[in-house]
Design a protein around this nucleic acid. Sequence first.
DNA 1: CTTGACAGGTGTACGGCGTACACCTACCGT
DNA 2: ACGGTAGGTGTACGCCGTACACCTGTCAAG
Lengths: 236, 236
Amino acid sequence: MAEQAGTPRRTPLSRERILRTAIALADTAGIESLSMRNLAQELGVVPMALYKHVANKDELLDAMIDMVVGEIDTSIPDTDWKQAIRGRILSARSALQRHPWAALAIESRNMATPAILGYLDSVVATLRSGGLSADLAHHVMHAMGSRVLGFSQELFDTARDAGRSGPAAAPQPAAMPPEVAARFPHLAEIATAASHDDASVVGSGCDDQFEFEFALDLLLDGIERLQQQGWTSAHR
Amino acid sequence: MAEQAGTPRRTPLSRERILRTAIALADTAGIESLSMRNLAQELGVVPMALYKHVANKDELLDAMIDMVVGEIDTSIPDTDWKQAIRGRILSARSALQRHPWAALAIESRNMATPAILGYLDSVVATLRSGGLSADLAHHVMHAMGSRVLGFSQELFDTARDAGRSGPAAAPQPAAMPPEVAARFPHLAEIATAASHDDASVVGSGCDDQFEFEFALDLLLDGIERLQQQGWTSAHR
DNA sequence: CTTGACAGGTGTACGGCGTACACCTACCGT
DNA sequence: ACGGTAGGTGTACGCCGTACACCTGTCAAG
């Protein structure tokens, strides 16, 4: 229908389309190659055209973040608070894994898009309705830190670089070159420790999902214990 | 001595001097205003001069990170592992607080300067000598994540923006504007919860140091419990 | 049917960035 | 005396974000 050959007239550009293209670009090519010029080209449009729909690059990034945060499943199961929180956080994690650039982007912002605030608020609500005091809930949010948004926060982050065009993006830097292992013997020791009896692990060795849940449960169990023994700020 | 007036000939530039100036600049003006051109000017030198001492900006950043990590006190007290780790991490935290740009810089790097590896290795060594299995030590390192480097990782990060020239850098955004509080009632509730009986807190209300130690102890206590009950990877 | 406002895409230009590359110059060991 | 070399300089390129003036198609009011 319509659309003669003369002027190809792409679908007419809109904030929505810009955001989706930007996210797709960041997902596949890495956040560092998301420039206004790049993005415009992807949309078949001149760079300045974007500014009719977003204020500037920072606002664009904020909007992208909000869209990712919006992917987090916050449907509330009526189990106990611990399971509810656990589920929410694991959902957050999977959203952030679909968009590896998002974690760093969120941290770089001084803070708090409305979507993030809304999500945090819902988490706090769950804690409170689970019987935690406002005080304890406060400390818990700090303790969870960005983990509540699903950040693996690993330091040795395997995902981060993301991108690559091909489907196989090099499985891993492969264990550890021996001269490095020699200089850091204890790291070398534990690097191989966890993969010993587990078949699901292929690369240099650790199951990110397991590690994430290990830490998460460590925190959740500790929190539950505090709650059960009626924690108050009797410290300091 | 020497140094006539004709050519002011600043102290002759060196990798050391570049690094120190770069760190000072990042500390006081913020990492985003550390450019090669800026830094060169600060040193009274033309930008390209820097490249005789550092390979490029990335290498410069890595070296800056290494210098900050080098500030972490790793002297080993012969108390138990838990106290040793605790002390190390709190020292890391104070180093990172002196250089607010460092946390983000470290996370942006795909990973691991030698100094960081060395530090991590020493932490693992302490865990192992405290009797933790290699396996458990591995998971513990993941669970601690970047907290082992003293990251507050707060999400609502009060420090980050850093810089400012004057001594008073605005104490805090002041609690929460009421229309925001209305939209996020649970956040509003806990935002004020923790400051109730504590005089040491002035701003909008939380004692970062306390929160950090709260989370740290939650993790350490949980780990100790696992160790005491002889944890093995009997999960999954 | 004319008109004029306005939303949305365009073109040009500016200042800043990292850094490649050719150069110059002062010093040093032979 | 001299050639090499370490270290500072100058110019230039291609990228970035974006200010600002401009054009063009659409549509409502006269």
